[in-house]
Amino acid sequence: MKKILIMASAGFCISMFAPTTSQAGYEIFDPSVSSCTGLNCSSIVMGGTVLNAVGLSTARWEAAVYANPGECLRVDETAMFGSGADDEIVVVGPNGTVWRNDDFTGLRPRVAFIAPQRGWYYVTIARFNGAPAPEHDFYLAYGRYIGTGNPNCASPTPGFAPAQAAKVPGGAGQAAPRNTPTGQ
């Protein structure tokens, strides 16, 4: 009995610290899909911080947001607080498509597009040029909207397809980047 209890305790401890596919606290889900037409209406607004305590880091903030195909997905940095803050938003879709924006409104970025597929879209906020970022706070609005004609998706951010494997005679193919907008 004592051996079973020890083994059960060990199994529990291992399961508590074992890596999993879940990213608790990382995925942000907006349960509403709105038809409202005001900018950022019905969005989830959250505060975030780009941390850079040592001043030498290419600090960034990351999260994952959800969308279904055909929905307008809008991620908008509505305010920045901190000296020297100048951000860029990069969103990577479930299929590898990349959307990025810097300075949509002043120095604040905004990414908006019609989601091509169901899933989690990974959002990164960092300094626009990749240089060490000053530590700063921001507000981010994330919303899901119905239809392609919604003003929240006016001036959509162009998406770029992921690299595709190039076939080379003889089988020595390597990935070749494709910088063609997906049209989504």
Rank of each mutant, 00 (worst) to 15 (best):
G84A: 04
I44T: 07
S43G: 00
L39S: 08
L39I: 07
T78R: 02
S83Q: 12
E71L: 03
Y26S: 04
I44Q: 09
D86Y: 15
D30R: 11
L39G: 01
G48K: 06
Y66R: 12
G70L: 07
S34M: 04
V50A: 06
G38V: 10
A64N: 01
A85S: 09
Y66L: 10
E71Q: 15
W61N: 06
S34L: 01
E88M: 15
L39V: 05
N68Q: 15
S42W: 02
E62A: 05
T78S: 13
E88N: 06
T37D: 05
R74N: 12
C41G: 02
T37L: 00
P69H: 12
W61D: 06
W61Q: 04
W61G: 04
E27N: 13
R60Q: 11
F81L: 09
E77T: 13
L56I: 14
F29P: 01
I44M: 14
V33T: 14
T37I: 09
N52G: 05
C36S: 14
R60A: 14
D87T: 07
A79C: 00
V33D: 06
S32W: 04
Y66K: 13
D76H: 03
V75T: 01
D76F: 03
N52L: 09
T21Q: 09
P69F: 08
S83T: 14
C36M: 07
A64L: 05
